[in-house]
Write a protein that binds this DNA or RNA. Structure first.
Lengths: 194, 194, 194, 194
DNA sequence: TATGAATGAGGGTTCATTCAT
DNA sequence: CATGAATGAACCCTCATTCAT
């Protein structure tokens, strides 16, 4: 009946899918519910997405694209590696707070369902970004000497885990705390220095 | 066929369940497959576990218990907070390498499926352990002053994420690298010190 | 195949369910068979009835409603209590002959499966109807003095049992015979009278 | 372990089966539960009864035999047809009150499950008994003239229905009421007589 | 474009029955 | 005689997907 532009419908479906997938995970989410939430018929969903898998992948790509664009912007406009890293961490922290369920969803499905390659590519890009920051930081003497590539992986891993804690266990983490933790580590420098 | 020792069968089921659940996640795993993998009939599974949920929960409890025991032991026998933390991290790293799929499974299902309370309790205990280490470290001047409770959460989160990276993306992380990362942070101390 | 008119399908399912339930009772009847008998897929059944229980209850309500309407009509149009009772008995006798299996089904499940309250309510209404007839009959001197309420229960019980015999054991009972039995009893009145 | 005489075990099983079958009907009753209630192993049940069906049939035969013996005795010792019928009705009424569930069970399963022939034979015998009473009653002028065979069926049907009402709906029926109902019918004899 | 009735494979679970001990 | 672990067919129900309208 509603002959709105297809794009309209597509958006509604994606929004609904995000809700439903987030709420119950990929496997338990069912098309009927997504269709209902989108105010569209079941068949309608299949007009825009070939199947459940493609719908999920579509969400995933959307979000990863947005995230990639945002992070690149942020990093580019930073004045120092430390600031870049700071902002990068902050951005992800804030995103996690806003989209807890989505975070859960993707971590949950990451590594199980299809779309692995897409996800891996995204993570590789993000890792390279961090790597670039670290390399710059070392060159400018801001960061201590370390293997940038491996350290980038550690930073990414840490961030992922902390984001997960936030989404999963409602842990409260301020950007400041996280920043300090990543930059300073645990040791007492005086002690260390001697 | 083997009509004796229910305990034997129970073990086989648990082992099979670990495999199958790990391989495809809770929702997609099916009892039939678990039974087959265990070399047992479908009905046989229900002789030892009331239902799918209980089977999963059983696995979970087992592993969390083992892990709790191991970590406590390790921490108790350490000579200094730094060493305790080191060993704690190392243990989890090694566990992650050995049981990639299991790690994935539980992280994946954490926060979605039942058993939330059990998991939360486990994480709380682990966090307290880290907290104790940190508090001791600060008191002895080994660690820098910080809020032990919040920092413990960060350490746990970081560890979780890195373990996840290992399990998920085959990232290689040596205990030494991780230790350095957590203890020292990224900053160059010279820079920091002045 | 026939993609139209859900009502059509619903009717076919109900008819099939009546057959199958009647033939083997609630517990042994299986949805698969009902679906087959209705010329519909398994899932199709669940499009119209939430589950097996609801399907059964649906049948039950339908029939009880029809029966209630019919009996009330009959009683209202009778010219005397004796005639009303006569017609009431006749109607049930004829129904029993036509729907043997259905009678069996409901008697069989009465008191075991769910829907108890619905059935009880129906029986209460029917009993009240008979009670009214008897009260009227006593007032007009047609019937002998008796407790209308208790006697109504006896009439209902008797009828139920005789209907059961018809359905179960193919006993042949003519309305005339039944009428005479209920109205006159066994005793010889001459004997009685003195 | 318990090496009591087999007869002991057999009795315990029968008693347990009566309970469980009565409580949930044949289809839903399960051997495990019966075995448990009998304080015997599952396998143990199969030592005494070839299968579920035979166990049920065994119960049935027991009860029908007892009932047949009792009714015959009662009828033989009565001094008049009216008294015989009275006592017969009374006995069944009392039995119904004491063994509500059992009554339900057999009525419920009558006509569905196996054992039809056994049941039919029993009912035929009982009917013949009543028939004999009625024939005697007519000959002695106690009962009004009627077809003894058909009337016996009506009496049996009535009784069955009333017993059912008692078992099913907790209807209260005294032997006196029932007797009067069956013997006198509803009509006012004065009216009738003229 | 849009609908939603229809399909049917497949999942979790139960339970009568067997048989090695 | 007795046990109870083991079997597997069969049940109820869900849901991704199709297609006539």
């Amino acid at each position: 009946m509603n002959k709105r532009s297809g794009i309209e419908s597509r958006k509604k479906i994606i929004a609904a899918a995000m809700d439903v997938f987030s709420g119950k995970g990929y496997a338990k989410a069912c098309i009927r519910e997504i269709a209902e939430a989108a105010g569209i018929s079941i068949g309608g969903v299949y007009l825009y997405f070939r199947n459940k898998e493609e719908l999920y992948l579509s969400l995933l790509k959307n979000e990863m694209h947005d995230s990639a664009v945002k992070t690149e912007e942020i990093v580019e406009h930073a004045e120092s590696p430390a600031e870049a890293l700071s902002k990068y961490l902050k951005m992800h922290l804030e995103y996690a707070l806003k989209h807890r369920e989505l975070i859960l969803l993707h971590i949950r499905e990451h590594g199980f369902v299809f779309g692995m390659d897409i996800k891996r590519r995204f993570f590789r890009e993000q890792r390279k970004l961090i790597e670039k920051i670290i390399t710059g930081g070392i060159r400018r003497g801001e960061f201590r000497r370390c293997n940038p590539r491996e350290t980038a992986k550690l930073v990414m891993g840490s961030l992922r885990g902390i984001v997960l804690s936030i989404a999963l266990d409602n842990v409260v983490v301020t950007p400041r705390m996280l920043n300090e933790f990543i930059l300073n580590g645990l040791l007492n420098k005086r002690e260390n220095r001697k």
